[in-house]
Design a protein around this nucleic acid. Structure first.
Length: 431
RNA sequence: GCCGCUGUAGCGUAACCAGGCAGCGCGGUGGCCUGUGGAGCCACUUGUCCGAGUUCGAAUCUCGGCAGCGGCCCCA
C-alpha cells in the first residue's frame, strides 16, 4: 500500500485553497436561494437504476457508476441531479402550494475520461421551478444564472440560448416520431449534422425537414431580435413552431428586462438530456470550451414519475465555475491572534486568554510547541496571523501579555483585559 | 472509446538530448545560539512509477504496462 496512489482516477482530494474557492461558489448559490426564494433540499447519492433509465439520454446512461447492492437491487450513483430532485418533488411535495421552488447543492458521478474541468465526481448546484409554464419562470432561471456569474466577479461570459420546442415542432410537423427526434436532437447537440440528416432524409418528408433544420442551424447571433426575425421567416408555414418561437421571444424579452444582457441566440442548439421540451441554455465563461452551467424547461419529466407538472431549472457546475471565478472574491484565512506561552507557568494564562478571545469571536491559535520564539513567529507569519500574544517568565511575573503586531512589528505590554478589548474591537472594525 | 504530452524524496525541481558517485530548494524531525535575527548554523529524514530488453554499466536508450495531465467526443 505504501507509496501507491490511493486516490481513484477522476476523484480529487481538495486542498484548502481549492476548497475555499468551491465554498465561495456554494455560498453565492445559497445566497441566491435566499434572494429568489428557492428552498434547499437534498436527495440520496445512491438511486435505483430505473430512475435514470427514464429520460437521461444515452450518453449519460452508459457512463453511470452502476452496481448491484447486497440486497440484489440494481443501483447507481446519481449521474445528475434533475431526475432525483424531480422524483423528490413528485413523491414528497404534492401538498405544497404551487409553484414549488427548490434548490440544491449535490455531488454527482459519471465515468467519463477525466480532463480539464471534468472529474468523475463533481458538484452541481441547482435551481428548479415546478408548477408553471409561465415564461416569467424561464426568464427567472436565466436571471439567476446571470447573477451567479456577476456575484462571483466573472465578467467574461455568455449564455447560449435555444429552444428544443421549436426543433421538436418542426420534426413533428414533418411526421418524425419522438424516439427518432431524441436521436436527431442528440446528434445535433454533438454537431454531427451529417449523421442527423442521414436519419431524416429517407423519411417521407425528410428532405424538406433537412432543408429547414439546416437553415435554422445557421442562425447564431448576439442580436436576439434579428435572430428571431430570421427564424420567423423560415418557420412561417409551421404554426406550432411559430408558437414555440414566440415563447422563446417572450422569455428573452423578460430576461433582458430583468437585466440579463449576455444572451447569444442559437436556433440549432440542442442538449444531450432527452427530457428538455422548451427553452434550453448553457453558460460559457472566458475561453473555457466547456459549459459552466446548463438548463432549460422540462415539462414532461415529472409526469413520467407520476405527476404531470411543468418545470424549468438549471444546474451550475460548481467545480467549473471555480475554475473561472475571480480569485479576489475568495475570502482568505483571517486568523487574528496566536498565543505563545514560553514557560509552563504561562499555560493557564494562555488557555484563559484563548477561551475568552474565542468566545468573543476572535479567530485564535494557541502554539502548543514551546519552540523558539523566532520559530513561533515564523509559523505565525506563514499562517498570516495578525497579532502574536507572547507569555514568558517576565509577563507571568508582571501579570501582563506582550502583544506583537505582525504587520508593523510593534510590541506593547498589556493587561489581559486590554488584549481582549483591543482584539475584539479589531474584528468589529473589520466587518 | 480514441489521440498527444509527462512520470526523479512529502512537495517543487537538476542531471536525461550526448549512459558513468542522483544534486538543490521548500517541508518535517532533532540539536546549537540564555525571549522576537518573522532568522541563522549543524545533523538527520526521504527518491529515479512498474516490468522486460540493450549495455561492463540505465534516472538517461528501446519496448510493454500503469498513472497523471491535456485534446477529441460529450457533459457540470
Amino acid at each position: 500500500m505504501r507509496g501507491e496512489n490511493l486516490t481513484l482516477r477522476g476523484m480529487r482530494n481538495l486542498l484548502p485553497d481549492e476548497k475555499a474557492k468551491l465554498n465561495r461558489v456554494e455560498s453565492e448559490i445559497r445566497r441566491l436561494f435566499n434572494i429568489y426564494g428557492f428552498q434547499e433540499i437534498e436527495t440520496p447519492t445512491i438511486e435505483p437504476l430505473e430512475l435514470f433509465e427514464l429520460k437521461s439520454g444515452e450518453e449519460i446512461r452508459h457512463r453511470m457508476y452502476r452496481f448491484t447492492d447486497l440486497g440484489g437491487r440494481e443501483v447507481v450513483l446519481r449521474p445528475e441531479a434533475t431526475a432525483s430532485v424531480t422524483k423528490l418533488v413528485v413523491q414528497e411535495m404534492r401538498s405544497i402550494p404551487l409553484p414549488i421552488k427548490v434548490g440544491y447543492i449535490l455531488n454527482a458521478f459519471r465515468y467519463d475520461e477525466p480532463q480539464y474541468g471534468r472529474y468523475r465526481e463533481f458538484k452541481q448546484g441547482g435551481f428548479e421551478i415546478f408548477g408553471t409554464k409561465s415564461p416569467l419562470a424561464d426568464a427567472e432561471i436565466l436571471e439567476v444564472s446571470s447573477r451567479l456569474m456577476d456575484g462571483l466577479g466573472i465578467r467574461d461570459y455568455y449564455i447560449k440560448i435555444g429552444h428544443e420546442g421549436v426543433l421538436r415542432a418542426v420534426l413533428t410537423y414533418f411526421g418524425v416520431e419522438e424516439i427518432v427526434q431524441d436521436r436527431v436532437l442528440g446528434l445535433l447537440d454533438k454537431e454531427r449534422l451529417t449523421e442527423a440528416f442521414e436519419i431524416l432524409a429517407p423519411l417521407p418528408k425528410g428532405l424538406e425537414a433537412v432543408e429547414l433544420i439546416k437553415s435554422l442551424w445557421e442562425i447564431k447571433s448576439r442580436n436576439a431580435t434579428e435572430a428571431l426575425k430570421r427564424a420567423e421567416m423560415i418557420l412561417k408555414d409551421i404554426p406550432e413552431a411559430i408558437e414555440q418561437l414566440n415563447n422563446l421571444r417572450e422569455i428573452i424579452e423578460l430576461a433582458q428586462a430583468s437585466g440579463v444582457s449576455k444572451l447569444v441566440v442559437d436556433m440549432g442548439f440542442a442538449r444531450g438530456l432527452d427530457y428538455y421540451t422548451g427553452m434550453i441554455f448553457e453558460v460559457y465563461a472566458k475561453d473555457l470550451r466547456i459549459a459552466v452551467n446548463g438548463g432549460g424547461r422540462y415539462d414532461k419529466l415529472a409526469s413520467l414519475l407520476g405527476w404531470d407538472v411543468p418545470a424549468v431549472g438549471c444546474s451550475p457546475g460548481i467545480d467549473r465555475i471555480s475554475l473561472v471565478m475571480d480569485e479576489k472574491v475568495v475570502p482568505r484565512d483571517d486568523l487574528v491572534c496566536m498565543i505563545v506561552s514560553m514557560v509552563k507557568e504561562g499555560d493557564i494564562i494562555a488557555a484563559k486568554l484563548a477561551g475568552t478571545l474565542r468566545m468573543r469571536g476572535v479567530p485564535t491559535l494557541v502554539d502548543y510547541t514551546r519552540r523558539d520564539v523566532s520559530k513561533a513567529l515564523s509559523y505565525a507569519s506563514k499562517r498570516n496571523v495578525k497579532y502574536v500574544a507572547l507569555i514568558g517568565g517576565r509577563e507571568v511575573e508582571a501579570n501582563t501579555i506582550a502583544l506583537k503586531n505582525m504587520e508593523t512589528g510593534n510590541q506593547e505590554e498589556l493587561k489581559v483585559e486590554q488584549v481582549v478589548e483591543k482584539l475584539s474591537s479589531y474584528i468589529l472594525k473589520k466587518t
